[in-house]
């Protein structure tokens, strides 16, 4: 009885955790990252304009690579800063 509820609680916790740490691009079921979408790009970048690591944001490596390209394009077009403000 007790063990059963324990397992249930653990499963619930795990579910919550995966929901929280999952990559936002995977969660949204997106195929490409638009470099013009500044709102989402800004969330993946620090105040100084550095990209956050995949470990921190939970981004899947496939999307981290795409994100890299998107951020670089946005920087080139002065949508994001190269160096913080």
């Amino acid at each position: 009885m007790a063990s059963n509820t324990k397992i249930k609680n653990l499963r619930k916790l795990l579910k919550k955790r995966t929901e929280r740490t999952k990559c936002r691009f995977t969660r949204a079921r997106v195929f490409a990252i638009d470099w013009k979408d500044i709102g989402t790009l800004q969330k993946m970048v620090s105040q100084q304009g550095k990209m956050y690591g995949a470990k921190r944001t939970g981004t899947v490596s496939h999307f981290q690579r795409k994100l890299k390209i998107a951020v670089k394009r946005a920087r080139f077009m002065a949508l994001l800063p190269y160096v913080g403000r």
Binding site: E19, R24, F25, R27, A28, R29, V30, F31, A32, D34, K36, D37, G39, T40, K43
Partner: peptide, 15 residues
């Protein structure tokens, strides 16, 4: 791109 931008916005709203 329009669809995916919407998806991203929806996701950020939810989470």
């Amino acid at each position: 791109t329009a669809n995916e931008r919407e998806l991203m916005a929806e996701d950020s709203r939810k989470n």
